[in-house]
Structure formats: structure tokens, C-alpha cells
């Protein structure tokens, strides 16, 4: 296929993916909007007003970046894992496997679909947060860069999960039992400065801490961790995930008999 034909194939997958999550907006866009609004009301407005300041900001200002990033992560991941597993389950992944598209085209088509949903949900949550607080983005480059890299990384991870998933339980295991706990414990609701030293050190092993704090640095200008380390970590994990996705596609592992 020529470069132009590959581009058309790529756009076809991206368009299909975006139309898919827009078509089922009740399952994809509405739930995170409702959940995050409840977080804003309960943790930000009701409980937050009694907590006082954290890291020099009101509690609402402190939790908003983490909640936005949590939405981006879970939605980018869930979009790719559910879409690609659905294609496997209903066997229409064969439409793609028999076509002359390159494996890179297939992978980036699905990844961009995940990134699109992650960013759209992130935008919705950001707009909802403006009902509760004001956001003054301190470092636009850091903010945009970490959101993009994180959504790409988790879209790639979702693709790996989809390839290995045998049933719908396998699709929800990682978001429910891995992503959500790690994000909750990754400094979304608190600064690790509040933790005893041992638990603060344990928290530093959690990659979500770096992602959430890098985004918080972009928005508020404060972070519990080194932002450069966060970018390096996300970059390395993204490259590893990309390499593994390509290995799966090139070998046809769990996709071709």
C-alpha cells in the first residue's frame, strides 16, 4: 500500500473508533461526567471545605487535576481494550487482519481512538470542574504533553490487554483492580508529604504518582515529584508498550491461529 492508502486506512479506523464511542455516549461519556461531578461535590465542596488547604491550594483546586487525569487514563485504556476485544469477540477483527494495512496503521488507528476518548472525557471533566473552582494553567506545555503521552501510553496498554483477554471479565480486571487503586493511591486526593516516610517511599514506586503530579504541576505549578522523571517514566513505558504491541501484531500472537 502507498503512504496515502495507509493514511486513508488509518483515518478509517480512527473515524470508526470515534463514531463508536460517540454512538454509545451513555456508556462512554456520561458515566465519567456523573462520577467526577460527584467527586467534585463530595470531596471538593462538602468534605474539602473542612479539610482546608493542601500544598498551598484549596482542597478542590488540589484534587481537580488528579481527577481529570484519572478520567483520561481510565477512558483511554477502556476505549481500546473494549473496542479491540469486541472486534476479536465478534470476529470482525478479521476485517482488519485480512486487509493490506500495515500493523503500525492498525495499532495507531486504535490508539488514536483511545486518545480521542481520553481527551474528550478529560475536557468534559475539566469543564465540569469549572462549576466548582477556577483553573489557571501554569505550564501549558507540561499539561498538554503529559496528557497526550499518558493517553497514548494507556491506549497502548489497553491494546495489549485486549489481545490477551479471553472474555469480558479480562477486559475489566485491569481498570478495576489495577488502574483505579493505583490512581487513588497515586496522590489524587492527597499530597504524599502527608504520609509517614515509609508509605511515602512506597508511593514513589507507583507510576501513577508521577503522572498525576506532572499534570498537577502543569495546572497548579506544584508537584510532589520531579516532573522530568515523570516524563522520562511515561516515555519509557510508552516505548515498551509500543514495542510489545508491535511484537504481538507482527507475530500474530493470539490473533492469528
Amino acid at each position: 500500500m502507498t503512504t496515502r492508502e495507509q493514511w486513508i486506512a488509518f483515518i478509517t479506523i480512527v473515524r470508526k473508533e470515534i463514531r463508536r464511542f460517540l454512538r454509545i455516549w451513555m456508556q462512554t461519556l456520561l458515566p465519567p461526567a456523573i462520577t467526577m461531578s460527584l467527586y467534585f461535590i463530595i470531596f471538593g465542596a462538602l468534605i474539602g471545605s473542612r479539610i482546608g488547604e493542601m500544598g498551598g491550594f484549596t482542597y478542590m483546586e488540589f484534587v481537580v487535576p488528579g481527577l481529570i487525569m484519572m478520567s483520561v487514563i481510565t477512558n483511554a485504556y477502556s476505549n481500546v481494550v473494549s473496542s479491540f476485544f469486541g472486534a476479536k469477540f465478534q470476529r470482525f477483527v478479521e476485517e482488519i487482519l485480512v486487509s493490506p494495512m500495515s500493523n503500525n496503521t492498525v495499532l495507531w488507528g486504535y490508539v488514536l481512538g483511545g486518545v480521542a476518548r481520553g481527551l474528550l472525557v478529560g475536557l468534559i471533566v475539566t469543564l465540569l470542574s469549572l462549576f466548582f473552582t477556577r483553573l489557571h494553567i501554569q505550564h501549558i506545555g507540561v499539561t498538554v504533553g503529559i496528557v497526550l503521552m499518558t493517553s497514548i501510553m494507556f491506549s497502548l496498554a489497553g491494546f495489549i490487554n485486549a489481545v490477551y483477554a479471553n472474555n469480558f471479565d479480562d477486559v475489566s480486571i485491569v481498570p478495576v483492580f489495577v488502574l483505579t487503586p493505583l490512581t487513588y493511591l497515586g496522590g489524587v486526593f492527597y499530597s504524599i508529604d502527608l504520609l509517614p516516610e515509609f508509605w511515602a517511599d512506597v508511593s514513589r514506586l507507583n507510576p501513577m504518582l508521577y503522572i498525576v503530579n506532572a499534570f498537577r504541576y502543569g495546572v497548579l505549578g506544584v508537584s510532589d515529584v520531579n516532573v522530568g522523571t515523570a516524563f522520562l517514566m511515561v516515555g519509557v513505558f510508552t516505548l515498551l508498550a509500543y514495542g510489545y504491541c508491535m511484537y504481538l501484531l507482527n507475530t500474530g500472537k493470539r490473533l492469528r491461529q
Partner: peptide, 15 residues
């Protein structure tokens, strides 16, 4: 319609 048109897209045919 979408199934057939998308398949054409996978083969690089213009919309």
C-alpha cells in the same frame, strides 16, 4: 453501509 465503506477504507480506497 458503514461495514462496506469501512472495509474499502482498510484497502486504501478514497471515501
Amino acid at each position: 453501509w458503514d461495514i462496506v465503506v469501512n472495509q474499502a477504507g482498510y484497502y486504501g480506497l478514497t471515501r
